[in-house]
């Protein structure tokens, strides 16, 4: 017998529905937010070394790379929040099961409406060459 462990690749090859991809993105954005938290804690740590050290640390953020990372963070937080609320609603009200697809599309619409304006606001300074 070969073992029953499912590799990451094999799992991705399974043809689930939209919900499976929504869940995969949920996990991915969760990890993204966690990564931000780690960076944020390190940056805040510089406060203990005095104002100059802290200012030097946060000046790294003023770069095109971190501007893009900021948009990615906005994406991750918004997606994780909206999708998380969708899953919570579906868990609490099982009777809504039949509207499963409508829920996916509604949460996608809310996400886009929230994300696009914020992303544009974030990217404008970059386009104006302020970085």
């Amino acid at each position: 017998m070969t073992g029953g462990r499912v590799t990451f690749r094999e799992g991705l090859r399974y043809r689930g529905g939209l919900n499976m991809y929504a869940w995969a993105l949920h996990r991915l954005t969760g990890l993204g937010v966690l990564a931000f938290l780690a960076v944020h804690i390190i940056e805040t740590f510089f406060l203990t070394l005095g104002p100059d050290a802290y200012n030097a640390a946060i000046s790294i953020y003023k770069s095109p790379f971190f501007k893009v990372a900021e948009i990615a963070l906005t994406f991750a937080v918004l997606y994780h929040a909206v999708n998380g609320i969708r899953v919570t609603i579906q868990d609490f009200w099982p009777a809504l099961w039949r509207y499963e697809r409508a829920f996916i599309w509604a949460s996608a619409a809310i996400f886009v409406l929230a994300f696009v304006p914020l992303a544009i606001l974030s990217i404008l300074p970059l386009l104006r060459g302020e970085y």
């Binding site: 399974y14 689930g16 529905g17 919900n19 899953v87 579906q90 868990d91 609490f92 099982p94 099961w97």
Partner: peptide, 24 residues
């Protein structure tokens, strides 16, 4: 709440819904 189970069930059982009822 990924719904793969509901989609896969050859008997058409609303599996995710049943699990949600147990959670409730």
């Amino acid at each position: 709440t990924i719904f793969n189970c509901t989609r896969a069930c050859p008997r058409g059982i609303e599996v995710t819904k049943a699990i949600a009822e147990v959670k409730r």
